[in-house]
Simulated scan of single mutants.
Amino acid sequence: MRILLAEDERSLSRAIMALLERNHYSADAVYDGEEALAYLECGNYDALILDLMMPKLDGLSVLRRLREGGNRIPVLILTAKSEVDDKVLGLDTGANDYLTKPFSTPELMARIRAMTRSQTTQVTSRLTFGNITLDQTTFELSSPSSSVRLTNKEFQMMELLMRNPRQRISSERFLERIWGYDSDVELNVVWVYLSYLRKKLAALQANVQIKAFRNAGYALEVSS
């Protein structure tokens, strides 16, 4: 299950991201409305947590554009606006649910589960390429010979590779998508996690490999 969080308050965003990761969700964070639309256009997300008061483009405008464009992604509005009229406007614009700040973490997780429940029953939770399968619910990477549970960061990297097979993904893109634009993590952490994944693919006797391309990034390809 992959979630996009659009929240411009950085401290709150980090807290929610940590909460999502602890509950085994894969998530990306953005900090303004234009960035949210760009990510939704390029990425494959199962749900959107959307703040209303954001720079560049407010949350309602983001929601309106999504619905007008035919995007039916489940949307949970998360905002400090608590007036009934604000809730009605958000729901009438196309939100699936509305949660006001401050909120309890159990309630947030319950609302996410409720909002995405129909998605999980209708959409497969597995990605397959070559002889390996990635279960997006359990973080389990498997082959006909064995299986292994990936850590959260390993899972996010493998998911990105498997959603874009044979496409070259730069180290910078891994860093931005998984650790965030404002992260102070150095680029070599990407190489470390790719090394972990290569070892696990070898242990699984996978017929795919993470191939490096000089100055161009990495791609998941079927072994020759």
Results as ranks from 00 to 15, higher is better:
204 L>M: 05
119 Q>S: 14
138 T>P: 04
89 L>R: 13
84 V>I: 15
41 E>R: 14
183 S>K: 00
91 L>V: 08
211 K>M: 14
194 L>Y: 04
57 L>V: 03
185 V>E: 00
95 A>M: 09
162 M>H: 08
33 G>T: 07
116 T>W: 01
166 R>N: 08
165 P>M: 08
58 D>N: 14
111 R>F: 10
2 R>G: 02
95 A>I: 05
37 L>A: 07
139 F>D: 10
144 P>Q: 06
28 D>T: 12
122 Q>D: 13
94 G>H: 02
134 L>P: 04
44 N>T: 14
147 S>W: 11
52 L>S: 11
168 R>C: 12
68 E>M: 07
16 I>Q: 00
117 R>I: 07
55 P>V: 04
164 N>G: 05
115 M>R: 05
135 D>C: 06
97 D>C: 01
160 L>A: 06
200 K>R: 10
144 P>A: 05
7 E>R: 00
128 T>L: 12
172 E>A: 14
25 Y>C: 00
111 R>P: 10
145 S>I: 06
60 L>Q: 13
136 Q>K: 12
108 L>Y: 01
207 N>R: 15
90 G>D: 12
68 E>G: 11
111 R>W: 12
137 T>V: 09
96 N>L: 10
38 A>E: 11
43 G>T: 08
43 G>R: 13
88 V>A: 08
216 A>M: 15
23 N>L: 02
171 S>G: 09
85 D>G: 03
209 Q>L: 14
203 A>V: 04
31 Y>K: 04
62 V>L: 06
86 D>E: 13
191 W>E: 13
2 R>P: 01
75 V>G: 07
187 L>G: 00
122 Q>G: 08
13 S>V: 01
84 V>S: 11
66 L>T: 02
79 T>S: 14
132 I>K: 06
150 L>T: 03
43 G>F: 10
137 T>L: 11
